[in-house]
Computed example of a mutant assay.
Amino acid sequence: MTVRQLTEHKELIAAQRLYESIWRSSAPPVTAELMRALIKSGNYVSGAFDGEDLIGACAGFCSPPAESTLHSHIAGVAPGMRGRNVGHALKLDQREWALARGIKAITWTFDPLIRRNAHFNLAKLGADATEYLTDLYGHMSDDINGGGDTDRLLVSWDLIAAEPRPVTAAGVVALGISPSGMPVLGTSGGHTLLVAVPPDIESLRATNPAAANEWRHAVRDVLGGLLASGARVTGFDKSGWYVVERNES
């Protein structure tokens, strides 16, 4: 596998088609024309290749100069390619590209209900969750978002200081999970709190949209409420828990 910047029109078309195959929406999440404009204006557009086959792609744009950050807008890996560290390779390439241009941090958003993404972003990369954003993109009818509210966690990856942050799910349960897989409210008391997410929210959206919606609102109320009150996400345990520390000062 190799990762490099996309330059040719046929590569941008392949990236657009890759995104279409992942999101399966009525319109492509990002078009080849937009990626061409991003490249021309000095922004980041890359692809991961297995031989001649494009198996992953990532695109982002720079923030205002004073912020010295790159915002990674979209990244996707071809169906069937999970487990090959394609996403990690794209992120490392993005890091090198940013540092070469004097950029010290990369931001992006992800759905806080998707367990594997939370673990990858917070535990494997060591990014910091900085803000809970309610229904950021509005209604999105695609296979990933399922037409529900598009809540997101905004994360910031310090390219100089960030390190992987393994944590253990130890603390007071603020939001748990029942034997039937539904959210269960716990208590907000204590310094270290645990917030659960379901094992596979994408499958749940397809099989039980009402349950998926209940999870959305439960995590919004608990995790979003904790962040709004000044608490800090310190990591994500692979078994499915956000670890949150309250600011008691």
Rank of each mutant, 00 (worst) to 15 (best):
S141W: 11
E131Q: 07
R115M: 14
S239P: 02
D158I: 12
T107A: 07
R4P: 06
N121G: 05
L38F: 10
E202T: 09
S180F: 08
P209K: 10
D149L: 13
D128E: 09
L204E: 05
R116S: 15
I39D: 13
H71A: 03
P112I: 00
V219F: 03
A75E: 09
A98G: 11
S249N: 13
F110G: 14
H119I: 07
A15E: 08
P29Q: 12
D50Q: 14
D142Y: 10
V77S: 04
L227D: 00
P166G: 05
F110A: 15
N43S: 03
A206Y: 09
T150N: 02
N117E: 06
W108C: 07
W23Y: 11
Y132Q: 03
M81H: 11
N43R: 01
R4H: 14
P64Q: 15
P166L: 06
N121P: 09
L154Q: 02
L34Q: 10
V167N: 03
L227N: 02
W23V: 12
S156K: 14
P199M: 11
R82D: 06
I103G: 10
A27M: 08
L223K: 00
Q94C: 04
L227P: 00
R220M: 04
G230F: 00
H191A: 07
R24K: 11
W23C: 09
R4F: 14
Y242D: 01
D142A: 14
A212I: 06
I103N: 08
S72I: 01
S25N: 01
A57S: 09
N247S: 14
S188I: 02
D149V: 15
V155M: 06
T234R: 07
R82A: 10
V219D: 04
R82N: 10
G102H: 08
G51N: 10
A169P: 03
R216E: 04
H73K: 06
M140R: 10
G235K: 08
R82L: 05
L70D: 06
Q94P: 08
A59S: 09
Q5D: 12
V77T: 13
L159H: 12
I39K: 15
N43Y: 05
H119A: 11
E33S: 06
D143Q: 13
L70F: 01
P65T: 08
S180Q: 11
N208G: 01
E214A: 14
D237Q: 13
M182T: 14
P183A: 06
W97Q: 08
E245G: 00
Q94R: 13
E96M: 09
G51Q: 10
W97K: 12
R95C: 15
G186R: 00
A100Q: 11
E20G: 02
S21Y: 07
L223C: 04
V243E: 06
Q16V: 05
I201C: 00
H71R: 03
G87R: 10
K91L: 08
E11M: 02
A48Q: 06
E20Y: 03
E67P: 01
V30N: 04
R84H: 14
V172Y: 00
I106A: 06
R24Q: 14
W108Q: 11
A129L: 13
V3L: 07
